[in-house]
Design a protein around this nucleic acid. Structure first.
Lengths: 204, 204, 204, 204
DNA sequence: TTTTAACCGAGACGGTACGTCACGTCTTGTG
DNA sequence: CACAAGACGTGACGTACCGTCTCGGTTAAAA
């Protein structure tokens, strides 16, 4: 699943000579990029500003990434990895789903929503980025959803063999749609999503 | 319903003298904008390029719209209106839904998908555009969905009082998600959507 | 003598459409360029700085000149024209020559020396610029030298038919050499030039 | 006479430890610098390119010279030394002067002219470089000129005590001027220089 | 019919970000 | 230590787009 894109690698693999790249610079740049993305958005974000905040230089950035878009893509990539977290066990299927939905809403209302929208265009010309974004939204849920379902099966709330696949697409899909329609992703939405869509779907 | 934005009106109402605006210019500009949006995306689309393709000039564009974002918003608005069409009656709920899903897939694979993705960023800073995009995706389906449901009820395939609301969000939501993940929106997807998600949801 | 170079002209001659170029901008830019050239030299002079001082923008500069070198060349071209002045009649050949030599020294010690040295490189790839520089140094002297000689002939200090050509090359040549050797162009040099070189040469 | 500039010496005098500097590297670098100077000029010459052509590295260059200007200065210095040559005795003053003038023209038309022009700018901010350039043009002539004059005195072509100083400045001065005016330094010029300027000057 | 005011195309203008390149410094590994 | 390789911060370069502004010329309603 490692969505390995063709960006950001020293020219040759086996090369040894010369001063090695400083990974700390890379991290500082990506951090600065993430921060600025969240603060001002993709379009208003300036490579120069990223360099300044990272106490770096444009040259160092362009030595590693072909352009602004790829820098941003990588920044998100890195940010995604440490974001997996265990879903709490609330004692009921509905409670678990609601917790999950609210968590997703919070993320979408924060930086992530902006990122996803900001990258929608880039996705169309970079299939790898698409897959990345996909995993960005799915991976955590994949794990969490299967856990929630199995817990519900154990409780007897769902029949044996209930599949969680629809959850994976319906939940973020509807959230994304709302996001792009400018509608709020609040607790009311979370309840609507769980009671009117997710639970009916799982019960059927 | 009319998502009235503060764009595009001659300066004063009561003025009379002088050459009136040429509506043909307006249409040419909007057409050019739509074409370019689909071809290169929102960011890469240039006002200069729109003017050139419309055999117009930047001044004419900026005389009518405050900026690029509003021009694009208007372009989509205009394009949306003539797009309503009657859904065919295939004789079964599944057939009707499948026809609808396939139609949506075709649209998303065509210009519309590009448009939607290209506008994702702009939506966040222009609530009106969000609502517009919302109606762009909903209105037609709103009508079609209610029609399909009522026909299914008449046939006895669905119980009296079955709601079509979930259809309106789940269908385009999942499609949009796939779109942004770079996954194909083909007939296999349409069948999956209908059989695994829509019908279970309606039946529950 | 119009050293017409292939720089700085609107794309077509007969074109009429569009906003015409503002000649005041051009003059402001050239003035700023001259000033900065004299202050910091060619290499340290920045196009950005020229734009700022001229209250212009880089775009406007690059719209008119292909690059920094051509801008500088043009700046000097313009500056040259209004620089002719009458040499005073001191009553003796030596006095006249000394006055001329001192004038030249002052010019070379001022902006002009810097200019000439700064352009030495550019000259080699732009023959027109060479001729321009040539006239920049010669024209005035051509006139002045013939005047001084004829006055000396009238006074009987020089024989009839004495040519002034050597003056035209020897005087600025030696000055230029000193300039490039980092040696001072002061009054001692002027006296040396007149007494040891110019007068012997004219007398022979 | 050695115009000793503050460049290019191992850090401490008495140090002994470590690998000694490889003088071959130094020569390779200076050769590369000279070649590139002549090919593309001072401004277009790149330290990186010098390093590449010398199969060296920038660090090795900057370990020995403070910067590009000093490197170039040194390159010229080295090149100058093996260039002293005995002027042939043609049997007459005019013949000797003509030979000298033609030699100078050939040099100026070759690499040296480019070098001198290329360094004109640098001279103004580096007095040592100026003196170097001065000796570059003078030293050889200093020796040759005195030789030619003394031979002419011996032949009786010139009076006892004739000074050669004017030759030293007038000859290269006029040549330099022509060079910067883009005028040819050919045999016609050599004859003009000798017959119209040098001999009259010496005879007076 | 004549005015007249707004239209239209073209394109110059001030700004600002982009991505490139060279300079001179530094930090590796290998002799 | 020297040396080759090459990353790094700095800062100018020349390009491209945005949104504004003038031009000369056109066009339809108002006088």
């Amino acid at each position: 699943m490692a969505t390995e894109t063709a960006t950001n690698a020293p020219p040759a693999e086996g090369n040894r000579a010369g001063r090695p790249r400083d990974d700390a610079r890379e991290q500082a740049i990506l951090d600065a990029a993430i921060d600025l993305l969240a603060e001002v958005g993709y379009e208003a974000m300036t490579v120069e500003a990223v360099a300044t905040r990272a106490k770096s230089s444009k040259a160092t950035i362009y030595r590693r990434w072909p352009g602004k878009a790829e820098l941003v893509a990588d920044a998100i990539r890195r940010r995604h990895e440490p974001m997996l977290c265990e879903p709490e066990n609330t004692g009921s299927l509905r409670g678990d789903l609601l917790a999950l939905a609210n968590l997703m809403c919070d993320q979408m209302n924060g930086t992530d929503g902006a990122l996803i929208c900001g990258l929608a265009v880039a996705v169309r010309s970079d299939a790898d980025l698409g897959r990345l974004l996909s995993s960005f939204m799915h991976d955590q849920k994949h794990h969490n959803a299967s856990l929630i379902i199995s817990r519900a099966v154990d409780r007897g709330e769902l029949p044996e063999g209930a599949g969680y696949e629809p959850l994976l697409e319906v939940t973020p899909g509807v959230a994304l749609l709302r996001q792009m329609n400018g509608e709020p992703l609040d607790h009311a939405f979370a309840e609507y999503l769980v009671d009117r869509i997710l639970i009916p779907l799982l019960r059927s």
